[in-house]
């Protein structure tokens, strides 16, 4: 018998699992065969982070973002990043209203619950940074006036890993602001067959009905914050992050912000599992998605064609668990 600390936390957790299952089912009805990616996306949503989806074109990056946004009945905006995109195209502009003879703020696409930044690496660094600033601070400042963004606020940015002309790769500092980078990957044979069937006749995204409200998500986010992270787990997170900094195969290790993101994500990941406490498995499962995009391999590792994902996997496998 479990000795529970509070009934309310229990109820919210049960609700959360229930809502999460519904959202997950809804998204998966559009994106078949990618439960892990969907779960990670939900994790980020509940942990108040942002996702960077890095994958080849056409695997459903935008589709997933849309499905997620639609299933929780919140506002979703899509920004197609191009080289000529300006910061004001994202944040909005103050335009002179002839009728009231005043400047009036016209909010940009950033004022939404879910913002889909497609092909973010095609925009100029200036525009990128405008987006990233609002991601971190959850507010927009235009002409000296600050406009807060309403929660939940999540940016789902996509970028193509294949180097193409006219792209500006995200600098490390900007990549660090994304909680998770995930790859959707090609679907397996059955899933792809299913996709052909379902998407062939109609657009399933159109049939998607919201299963949760934005207010529900806000409550769930609050519940996730209550998830217990024990001392050994915090120690373990620090150990993992420190190991990336001291690893000979990495030129740049994970930042303190990465540690914070890892802990928050672990909380949400545990909550999605119906647990009110984080276990090492959560941290281990999230280490690569949360940390890998922030790391830079050393020259030797690059020569050896070792990706940060692999180096991180090795680190996690070798790092002993702290015991109480």
């Amino acid at each position: 018998m479990v000795t529970h600390t509070g009934q309310s936390a229990d109820r919210s957790l049960d609700e959360l699992v229930d809502v999460a299952r519904q959202v997950s089912a809804a998204v998966q009805s559009v994106i078949a065969g990618k439960p892990d990616a969907v779960r990670l996306a939900l994790t980020v949503l509940l942990a108040e982070g942002h996702i960077l989806i890095e994958d080849v074109p056409g695997v459903g990056k935008t589709m997933m973002a849309k499905a997620l946004a639609r299933s929780i009945d919140c506002s979703v905006r899509r920004v197609q990043f191009t080289p000529d995109l300006l910061p004001s195209d994202i944040t909005g502009v103050s335009a002179f209203n002839q009728e009231i003879r005043e400047f009036e703020f016209k909010p940009g696409p950033i004022f939404a619950n879910v913002v889909l930044g497609d092909e973010i690496n095609r925009a100029s660094p200036k525009t990128q940074s405008a987006l990233l600033e609002s991601m971190e601070e959850r507010q927009v400042t235009v002409d000296g006036t600050t406009y807060p963004l309403s929660p939940p606020f999540m940016v789902i940015a996509t970028q193509n890993p294949v180097e193409m002309e006219g792209t500006y790769p995200l600098p490390e500092a900007q990549r660090d602001r994304f909680m998770i980078r995930l790859s959707i990957g090609y679907p397996d044979r059955d899933s792809e067959m299913l996709m052909l069937d379902s998407h062939g006749s109609s657009e399933p995204l159109d049939d998607l009905k919201p299963v949760a409200q934005a207010s529900d998500i806000r409550a769930l986010v609050a519940a996730v914050r209550e998830v217990h992270v024990s001392g050994p787990i915090r120690q373990y997170i620090i150990d993992v992050v420190t190991a990336t900094r001291s690893s000979a195969e990495l030129r740049l290790g994970a930042s303190p912000r990465a540690a914070l993101h890892l802990m928050r994500a672990s909380r949400a990941y545990a909550a999605l599992d119906g647990r009110d406490f984080v276990i090492p498995d959560d941290v281990q499962a999230l280490a690569v998605p949360v940390l890998a995009h922030r790391l830079l391999p050393s020259t030797a590792a690059m020569v050896g064609r070792e990706l940060p994902d692999q180096i991180l996997t090795t680190i996690v496998r070798r790092l002993p668990l702290p015991s109480r």
Partner: peptide, 12 residues
């Protein structure tokens, strides 16, 4: 042991 180490609640 998972509960004992990582949770506030324990199992008998």
């Amino acid at each position: 042991v998972e509960r004992a180490q990582y949770s506030l609640a324990t199992l008998p």
